[in-house]
């Protein structure tokens, strides 16, 4: 039973990290990217390939995975977001990010095959039940990531500019902020964090090409439950969703996971549309 809850919390950590990645991209561009879950997928597969197929040490795998995430994040800003944000059409970014996510997922499945492959152990540790690294690694990393992001937003110039852009892009631009480059930076950061989350949770999810879509959905539910823009909300939303998923699997079976998750999402959106920790925004007409 303890194992069920711990594995749920670990999954929740992964979902929370995905929600944080959504937040990073949303802050500068107001885009919720369909490709968010794919960062973790690309990072996970890349690390698994470097370590297991090329037999290189784990730290090189980590670097490769972060690099892949950064490149993918930068490319997704360049290809799928920049022109769309400039055109300022509401729905087009849904389509462009969906297109990019589909392409990346298919390309990965064509190159690396469709079978989930096991992920290497990050630290030399025997399987230790509840205290195993595959549980505490994503959990601790998600908390570290949330704290790190808060510090970054509050105390670094780049972070402050992200906040400024999320408040008002035009005003930031008028004050001489290169909004295009800041947006690109936020996507690179998102790619790195997403790939890192895929690396941390690799032992939990395996390196699987289909992870991206499911994770994009779960991370989004965590985000919507917690409230867009809130780091605490992302973690809490992830933890709620992860625990609920694990308990559902334990009591009813794995086939009801998504039904329960989407039920939670719809219930919450009906009761509290801005999420648990979100702030209501008055929409301008």
């Amino acid at each position: 039973m303890l194992l069920v809850i711990i594995s749920g919390l670990a999954l929740g950590g992964l979902y929370g990290m995905t929600a944080l990645v959504y937040n990073v991209m949303y802050s500068t561009s107001k885009v919720l990217s369909f490709g968010t879950g794919q960062f973790a997928m690309v990072g996970g597969i890349c690390a698994a390939w470097v370590v297991l197929d090329l037999h290189w040490p784990v730290w090189i795998g980590l670097i490769a995975c972060l690099l892949a995430g950064a490149v993918f994040g930068w490319l997704s800003e360049l290809i799928a977001v920049r022109r769309i944000v400039a055109a300022s059409d509401e729905h087009l970014w849904v389509l462009s990010t969906l297109a990019l996510a589909t392409m990346v997922q298919e390309a990965m499945s064509l190159v690396w095959g469709t079978d989930p492959t096991p992920f290497p152990r990050v630290f030399p540790q025997e399987f230790a039940g509840v205290l195993d690294q595959k549980f505490w690694l994503p959990l601790l990393l998600s908390i570290a990531m949330a704290i790190g992001l808060q510090v970054f937003y509050r105390h670094s110039m780049t972070g402050k500019l992200f906040i400024a852009m999320s408040e008002d892009t035009f005003a930031a631009r008028a004050r001489g902020v290169s909004t295009d480059w800041m947006r690109a930076q936020s996507y690179i950061l998102a790619g790195v964090l997403g790939a890192l989350s895929g690396f941390a949770a690799g032992q939990l999810t395996f390196a699987d090409f289909a992870l991206g879509t499911a994770l994009g959905l779960s991370g989004f539910i965590a985000l919507a439950v917690g409230g867009i823009g809130s780091s605490v909300g992302a973690l809490v939303g992830g933890a709620i969703l992860g625990t609920l998923t694990a308990l559902t699997t334990y009591y009813f079976g794995a086939q009801y996971q998504k039904t329960i998750a989407i039920g939670l999402l719809i219930l919450l959106l009906v009761v509290r549309p801005q999420g648990l920790f979100g702030t209501t925004q008055v929409r301008q007409v």
């Binding site: 290809i79 799928a80 022109r83 769309i84 055109a87 059409d89 087009l92 389509l95 462009s96 969906l98 297109a99 990019l100 996510a101 589909t102 392409m103 298919e106 390309a107 064509l110």
Partner: peptide, 18 residues
Amino acid sequence: YGTFFYGVILLIVVLVIP
């Protein structure tokens, strides 16, 4: 390559002729 191809077409259409 069907689905990959669909993704490419979708992206091109969205970017070039919305």
